[in-house]
C-alpha cells in the first residue's frame, strides 16, 4: 500500500513541476485563441453588448477587400526581404567575427555588433527617422558623394518607404542570425577544415563545401524562426512608418491594429488576426517538424 502510494507520488512528480507553467500557458493561450476565432464569426464585438452572429461573412468581406490583399502583399515583401537581409548580413558578420583574431577583440566586436538587437523598437524607429530625414545624415552623405542632387524623403515617399523599412529591419534583426550562426560555427569539427585545407581549399571553397552543409539544419531552423517572427512583426513597422505613407508599408499586423484600435472594427480586426494565425501555423508546423527530430 505504501509502496503503491509512493510510486504514485513519484510518477506524479514531473507533472507537479510542470503544472504551474503549463496551466498559465494553456489558459492564457487557449482561451484567447478560442475567443479570437469566435470574434471573427460575429459582428460588432466588444463595442456592442450583444453582437450578431454572421458566420463567415467577415471572411468573405476580407477576401474581396483590396486593402487586405495589398497588406498581404506588403507583408510578403517585408518578411522575405527582412529574412534575406538578416541572413546575408548576419552570416557575413559571423564569418568576419569568427576570423583568426585575438579572442578579446572577438568578444569586443561581437558585443558591439549585437547592440542593434537590444534596443526597444521605438528607439530604433526614432534613430532611423533621424538618419533618414530629408535633412538627415544619410541624405547629406548621398549628396556629398554626388549620388543624388535632391534630398530623398526615404520614409515619406511611397516608392522608397518599403526599402527604408527593410533597411531598418535588417539593421535591427541581423544580430540574432549572427549569434546563432556564430555558435553553430563552433560545432563544426575542425578536422573537416583541416582536411579541406590539405586539399588546397580556399576560404570560399571551405565556406560552400564545409560550413554551409554542416550548418544547414541550424540555418534552416533559424531562418524559419526569423520568418515566423517577422511575418507578424508590429512595433517596428508601426513606429517607423505607421503603415504609410498612405498604405505603402501597411502589413497585416498594422492592418489588424488599425482596424481594432483606430477604427474600432474589432470583428474585422479579429478576422485579419485569424488569417495571420493560420499562415504562421503552417510555418510553425514546418519548424516543429525540423525541431522534433532534434528533441
Amino acid at each position: 500500500m505504501t509502496t503503491m502510494l509512493r510510486q504514485m507520488t513519484t510518477r506524479g512528480t514531473p507533472y507537479l513541476f510542470l503544472l504551474p507553467g503549463l496551466v498559465i500557458l494553456g489558459a492564457l493561450l487557449s482561451v484567447p485563441l478560442y475567443k479570437v476565432v469566435e470574434y471573427s464569426l460575429y459582428d460588432n464585438v466588444i463595442v456592442e453588448r450583444n453582437p450578431t452572429f454572421v458566420g463567415l461573412a467577415n471572411y468573405t468581406n476580407l477576401m474581396t477587400d483590396p486593402g487586405y490583399w495589398s497588406a498581404g502583399f506588403n507583408t510578403v515583401v517585408f518578411t522575405v526581404g527582412s529574412v534575406l537581409g538578416h541572413m546575408i548580413v548576419g552570416i557575413g558578420l559571423a564569418l568576419l567575427v569568427n576570423a583568426d583574431i585575438a579572442p578579446r577583440a572577438r568578444t569586443f566586436f561581437r558585443s558591439m555588433l549585437i547592440l542593434p538587437w537590444i534596443f526597444t523598437a521605438v528607439v530604433v524607429a526614432l534613430n532611423w527617422q533621424l538618419l533618414l530625414n530629408p535633412f538627415g545624415l544619410i541624405n547629406y552623405m548621398l549628396q556629398w558623394m554626388g549620388l543624388t542632387s535632391e534630398p530623398l524623403d526615404w520614409l515619406g515617399d511611397p516608392d522608397l518607404a518599403m526599402w527604408s523599412l527593410l533597411l531598418i529591419s535588417t539593421w535591427r534583426g541581423y544580430p540574432f542570425i549572427m549569434v546563432s550562426f556564430l555558435s553553430g560555427l563552433q560545432t563544426v569539427p575542425r578536422e573537416l577544415y583541416e582536411a579541406a585545407e590539405i586539399d588546397g581549399a580556399g576560404f570560399w571553397h571551405k565556406f560552400w563545401h564545409v560550413t554551409l552543409p554542416q550548418l544547414k539544419p541550424v540555418i534552416f531552423g533559424v531562418a524559419l524562426l526569423d520568418l515566423i517572427w517577422t511575418f507578424q512583426l508590429f512595433p517596428l513597422v508601426w513606429l517607423s512608418t505607421g503603415g504609410g505613407p498612405g498604405r505603402a508599408t501597411e502589413v497585416l499586423s498594422t492592418l489588424t491594429f488599425r482596424l481594432a484600435f483606430v477604427d474600432f472594427q474589432f470583428s474585422q480586426a479579429a478576422t485579419v488576426a485569424v488569417s495571420i494565425l493560420i499562415i504562421s501555423a503552417a510555418f510553425t508546423l514546418l519548424y516543429l517538424r525540423n525541431e522534433a527530430r532534434r528533441l
Binding site: 510542470l18 500557458l25 484567447p32 485563441l33 475567443k35 497585416l252 474589432f266 528533441l295
Partner: peptide, 25 residues
C-alpha cells in the same frame, strides 16, 4: 514530448493575433 512541443509552439503564436482577445480578457 507533446508537452515540450506545446511549449515550443507557444513561442510561435503571433502576438498580434492575441491582442484583441487579450484586450477582452
Amino acid at each position: 514530448r507533446v508537452a515540450k512541443l506545446f511549449v515550443i509552439t507557444t513561442q510561435m503564436v503571433p502576438t498580434i493575433t492575441l491582442l484583441i482577445p487579450y484586450f477582452g480578457v
